[in-house]
Amino acid sequence: MSYFKALAYKIKQILGGIKMKKLFISIFIFFSPAAVLMGITPEEILERMLENQVHDTARIEGKMIIQDRFGKKTVTFVSWSRGEDNALIEFTSKYEAGQKILRNEDELYLYFPDAEEVIRLQGAALRQSVLGSDFSYEDMTGEKDLLDSYKVTLLGSEEVDGHDCYKLQLEAVSRNVPYPREILWVDKELFIYRKVHKFSLSGRLLKEMRITRFTRQNGKVIPVELLMEDKMKKNSSTEFIIQKIEIGIPIPEEKFSLRELTW
């Protein structure tokens, strides 16, 4: 703070009659994030992006519009999440009503109202499509510990849909990740990814994700509409739309328990 005061005093001496309020606005603009972060590390870019994406707690109401070669369908859901480790999604659309997906740290469970047991998914099964969408179970429940699982490299800057972005490359250092390599285009101003490419081990593009709309809430920039395309499927895409989001709300721990899942 003293640095800013000293700087302001000096500038006041130079510029004379400029009001302090105006001065601070000028400083704020001058020290805008894009400018300040000229020397930012790739890890810091990723951290700032994750700050926008990961919430202490969140409740979301949304829908997925799934398009394949045979047509379009809409699936609605409500989800609760706590940090990176816990997520519960409950589907509410007519044909999927009551189905739930629970993620607790590395465990993923499926609940179906007509099944007598909860299904624990593991291994290759996690890569299966969620309700025929372009998202896999791993995609839906979020990639966690990105910084621990991937080596991050800044490849440079590129524009995506007119937005200046950092181009980051993520290379897996752990086998326990869904995609061995990813390239993220992170908006330099908003610190949200504008586009993500997910690759196979052989370097084949598997999925492309784009953010088409975002909102600001609690000081965060939150993507609310994104488009996922599974490049292995013909004429396939999924629009993921968040219709309502509440962050920082109290969610009891039991919400993410297996007992709660079967209720």
Partner: peptide, 18 residues
């Protein structure tokens, strides 16, 4: 014995029954 079957539904969703 009882088994749970998972299947892709007509709408390309997933369902399971025991």
């Amino acid at each position: 014995d009882r088994i749970t079957l998972l299947a892709t539904t007509m709408r390309k969703s997933i369902n399971a029954m025991t």
